[in-house]
Simulated scan of single mutants.
Amino acid sequence: MTMRTQTVRHRRRPRTPYLLITPAVAILALSMGYPLVWQLVTSTQRFGLAQQFGKAPESVGLGNYVTLFTDSYLWTVVARSIAFCLVNAGVTVLIGVLLALLMKAIGTVPRLILQVSMLLAWSMPVVAAMTVWRWLFDWNRGVVNWVLTWGGLDFIGHNWLQAPLSFFFVATTVIVWMSVPFVALSVYAGLTQVPDDVLEAAQIDGANGWQRFWGIVVPMVRPVLMIVLLLQIIWDLRVFAQIKLLQDAGSTPSETNLLGTYIFQLGTGSQDFGMASAVSVFVLVLTIALSWFYVRTLLKEDA
């Protein structure tokens, strides 16, 4: 085989993978590209209820963005959303890692029971799960109030959703409960790839459990941890259904709005789809900004 033949084959070989993924990339670009372009265009227009019935939208240029960035309430919602997102993502990953370590340490039968329980919690529809959680924290018939009152505390008729702080405590409890199974199962899959002989060798050399965890386990599952943390930040920043259903149960939306519910309020509530699109574009940019550090780190590791 001549050198020229080897060079030709080497040049032709990479084309096949690109051809195979081209249809999937095209479908993904079309399904995601059209809504994104529509939002970008709508964010520069005055688009309200009349435009929904055929009236031509009026172009306002960057007027929606000027109004957006000069609105003090928006920045309150942004700060609230970022704080809520980071707290939820951190707590979710922490509990998920602890459960993954627990699954690694226990026997087969209890591990299967724990895994099935988490899968059931993870697969439960949001509306069904929220129905249960709203009943648990109900101010009149809630199990949580009953248990706390039975334990000697005065929680008779306590409304968990009235004050913003307790509202977000309930929201965090619900969202973490629904997100932990994904993190725990993902991290556990990564832990199964850590060689036992390496851990045994470190133990023989005198490393204690904490040193083995930070010196061997964490570096080996670090890519998994970064991916699940990145996904949790993205998901928790865009959370909507849980917050909206809790607001409908008896809270003040202006005091508990996050970015998702604020966009819903602007669009569906106020029929101001131009402003809602502008906030949506802002959320996209904010999501990229928050996740860029993790994406850049992953790209460096793959390079």
Rank of each mutant, 00 (worst) to 15 (best):
V97G: 00
V77N: 00
N64T: 10
L114K: 00
E58H: 13
S72F: 12
F69H: 04
V91L: 14
S81N: 09
V77I: 03
G54D: 08
N64R: 04
V60Y: 03
A129M: 13
W122K: 05
A105K: 11
G63S: 12
M130Q: 05
L74Q: 00
V93G: 01
E58G: 10
V127Y: 09
I82F: 09
F47K: 00
Y65H: 15
K104W: 07
V66R: 11
L94T: 15
G63D: 13
S59M: 10
P125M: 01
I95L: 10
A50I: 05
V109M: 12
A56D: 08
V91S: 01
M103Y: 05
A89H: 04
K55E: 09
V116W: 04
G107L: 13
G54C: 08
V116K: 08
V109R: 12
V60Q: 02
K55A: 13
Q115R: 11
V93P: 03
T70H: 15
N64D: 12
V97E: 00
D71N: 15
A129F: 09
D71T: 14
V66I: 14
G61R: 12
L98A: 14
G96A: 02
G61K: 10
Y65F: 15
S123K: 13
M103P: 08
L101K: 07
V78E: 02
P125N: 02
L74A: 01
A129G: 14
L119C: 15
T92N: 06
G96P: 02
R46Y: 03
Q51N: 13
Q51L: 00
I106F: 08
P125E: 02
L102D: 03
V116H: 07
M118N: 00
G61Y: 15
F47P: 01
Y73K: 14
A79M: 05
A83K: 06
Y65A: 11
T67I: 10
M103H: 03
I82K: 05
A128T: 05
I82Q: 03
A79K: 14
M124D: 07
T92Y: 01
L119V: 10
P110W: 07
L94Y: 10
W75D: 02
S117V: 07
A121E: 05
L99H: 00
S59C: 07
F47C: 01
V116G: 07
V66E: 02
I106C: 13
V60H: 02
W75A: 03
A89P: 12
V127L: 14
I82G: 01
G90R: 02
M124E: 07
K55V: 15
Q115L: 04
K104A: 05
T44S: 14
E58M: 11
S117K: 12
L86D: 08
L101F: 06
S117L: 15
V60D: 00
L94P: 07
R46K: 10
M124Y: 08
D71S: 15
Q45S: 06
I95M: 04
C85L: 03
G63M: 14
